[in-house]
């Protein structure tokens, strides 16, 4: 049976990515460990993404609050606004929006960087100089993306809640202490923990897709552009798929 080209490409890509992920796990825990490069990547991937994540988080919190206010007023539940925004940000909007911003910034930059290294033979140069390029380039980046996204999500959530506090005070008057008391009273560990855990999977997906696309880049500069673009598209799609699976699992364990 001959499959249509689209399906064949899809299966090729899925198989390739699965093998690449398998290779990651087989190499990640074996010495030699590239610890200093991992720290450098954490700085680039984590610290340098902070301004973008912070700004989008702030705007998201502020806009969400201002958009929700009229509806909450119409239900006579204006006082519940901080609690509702807090739950929405911590459980869903914060992790997913931050992960999507992260996919756009980090996924594309990893895809383009490794892609251009591939087409200009820099990866080969690393290999012939006796350095394992998979460990040095892929393992460090995937690890850094996996460990940095949860940190960014926590910081993004905090800035987002601050944005929400500003949003509440544009049309009303609520003290800082009261706002955050209402937010934290409404939140429980079950709201925070599953949302936090899924961000590790989001980070891993962004890292592995970016590295896979970059590492398998070809056809010169056009291929580099395509790697960067498809890194963002595929990792964004994976973020939604992981989110969908996460909500089912959370529901299964009765954490809703």
């Amino acid at each position: 049976m001959v499959l249509p080209n689209t399906w064949q490409r899809f299966l090729d890509e899925t198989g390739g990515m699965s093998r690449f992920t398998g290779r990651f796990f087989s190499q990640a825990f074996k010495p030699r460990y590239e610890f200093s490069e991992f720290i450098r990547q954490c700085f680039i991937i984590g610290y340098k993404s902070l301004p973008l994540v912070g700004l989008t988080g702030f705007i998201m919190g502020l806009v969400l609050t201002m958009q929700l206010r009229p509806s909450m007023i119409s239900y006579g539940a204006e006082s519940q606004l901080p609690a509702m925004v807090g739950i929405a940000i911590v459980r869903e909007i914060g992790p997913v929006i931050t992960a999507l911003i992260f996919a756009g910034k980090i996924g594309s930059s990893i895809g383009a960087e490794l892609g251009s290294m591939k087409v200009t033979e820099q990866i080969d140069a690393m290999e012939v100089s006796g350095t394992n390029p998979f460990k040095y380039l892929v393992v460090t980046r995937v690890m850094a993306a996996t460990f940095m996204l949860p940190v960014l999500v926590i910081l993004g959530d905090a800035i987002s809640l601050y944005g929400s506090y500003i949003g509440v005070n544009i049309r009303g008057v609520t003290s800082f202490d009261l706002f955050f008391k209402q937010v934290f009273d409404a939140l429980s560990f079950d709201d925070f923990f599953p949302a936090f855990i899924k961000t590790y999977f989001f980070g891993f997906a962004v890292g592995i897709v970016g590295c896979y696309k970059g590492f398998n880049s070809n056809k010169g500069t056009e291929g580099v552009g395509r790697s960067a673009n498809s890194s963002v598209v595929v990792s964004s799609l994976l973020i939604f798929i992981i989110d969908l699976l996460a909500v089912q699992i959370i529901d299964l364990f009765g954490l809703n």
């Binding site: 960087e113 251009s116 290294m117 200009t120 033979e121 820099q122 080969d124 140069a125």
Partner: peptide, 9 residues
Amino acid sequence: FQSNALYDS
């Protein structure tokens, strides 16, 4: 290497 393959970054 023909392309020199210097690390750009």
